[in-house]
Design a protein around this nucleic acid. Structure first.
Lengths: 234, 234
DNA sequence: CGCGTGTATACTGTATACAATAAAACGTGG
DNA sequence: CCACGTTTTATTGTATACAGTATACACGCG
């Protein structure tokens, strides 16, 4: 049984929260899945209380939807939904690089270059998991360089819904040549503290992401309606 | 006793959540105040469970800070903190009017004008509470016009920390002439679907807000250190 | 008198028990 | 066989009981 007691000093609710979150983002808990408290409780070896508190947190992040007296279910991802998120992310990512241009320190620039190189190395492995990881780290370096704590939190919460599509997006990006090029452009602009160029580069980056993710969602939806036609099997 | 059982179909956790939230934003629960579960519990006439769940939600919104095994306290507002929030809000408010310029419907424009006029009427009353209310409504109309659900949520959560300063900010704005003028400028730009002008107007609007709020925070801090010198009394 | 240690206490963290309700199962009459 | 009402059951909402830990205070020792 996947007991959740890994970190002993962390409250159970946080362990549960992390576990559920992970499960949702990897698709282990698919959209629409009902989250039943007793069930999750003995699956994770804890009582309902930490489960409930974790669900409250996931609810406020938008990862689960509550139906009163009915319970929680994993939130459905719709195209509108994702489009809204990306629209906001675009604005915030641009803010991010603009602030980074103003505030990044020499060490920050070093970190950024390191992250860029690490990403390019990751691309060579052709392993989506590793590439995704390096991509996240690259973005985190930029976000940290902006020196705005609120931005860190928001970017995190806005990234969540997209993680479910991350692997496909990575695989999708025609040989990753694009990604590498885009990252280089962004680093170059920040290094020269050229806000406009940085903003433009990031804008393109997100727009590409949007195209890829939207296509993915449409494919998913098609597949789903096929399943509906032929009967769902498990 | 302020029993919380007003809305009967709403789960208690949500009533408690609203109540606590309100209390924090109005300053009834001042920054630094400890939130003790049993105490709140019998003050509101409910058990600890709904209280805890409400606290989890407030925590994720940043209104309360958890210290493990110690409990929750109302989050302190620092200048950095507020500055970070305003920086983000500036970007999102600009995104908001840009989207509104693209998407607003004729009815939306009507609502917007109505909200503007209502605000100007509210200013005439010289009652900060009424003015603040009309101001919030004005902004909500714009946010809704942007047609982005995620933006609605984010704007809401970013407004929270500022509400504590809202009244002072309103009082502060030298006779509200500025506010009225700024609002008119914004409405005019959206009406003409002039994204650049709208963005600029909103930018100024937020910058003014920032100045006022930052000053307010500094005054509070000074007062606080005075209290510290002479001993805190209650 | 200062400092550490022990103990009491008050609080959170967790589990469980109880209540209420909504959906499913079932039966019964048409 | 269907429609409709009734009972059952599964699941959430809420309260409470129990465990563990951090803090404060007192006491003894250096």
């Amino acid at each position: 049984m996947p007991k959740v007691k890994e970190d002993d000093f962390l409250p159970l609710r946080d362990s549960v929260y992390n576990k559920l979150r992970q499960a949702i983002l990897t698709g282990e808990l698919p959209a629409g899945e009902r989250l039943m408290e007793v069930h999750l409780g003995d699956k994770l070896g804890v009582s309902r209380t930490p489960i409930r508190e974790a669900i409250r947190m996931l609810e406020l992040e938008g990862l689960v939807t509550m139906i009163p007296r009915k319970g929680a279910m994993v939130s459905q991802i719709t195209e509108k939904n994702m489009s809204d998120v990306l629209e906001v992310r675009r604005a915030l990512d641009i803010l991010c690089v603009q602030l980074a241009c103003e505030r990044i320190t020499p060490e920050g620039i070093e970190d950024l270059k390191k992250a860029r190189d690490a990403f390019e190395k990751a691309v060579d492995t052709n392993d989506s998991r590793i590439i995704a990881q390096a991509d996240v780290e690259f973005h985190n370096v930029i976000i940290r360089a902006a020196g705005n704590d609120r931005l860190v939190i928001l970017e995190d919460s806005l990234s969540l819904p997209m993680y479910r599509y991350r692997y496909e997006y990575i695989k999708d990006s025609s040989g990753h040549g694009n990604l590498v090029k885009e990252h280089r452009k962004i680093v170059g602009a920040i290094e020269k503290r050229n806000e406009e160029a940085a903003a433009e580069a990031v804008g393109e980056h997100i727009d590409n992401q949007r195209r890829s993710i939207i296509r993915q969602i449409r494919m998913d939806r098609e597949e789903e309606s096929m399943n509906a036609l032929y009967g769902k099997r498990r």
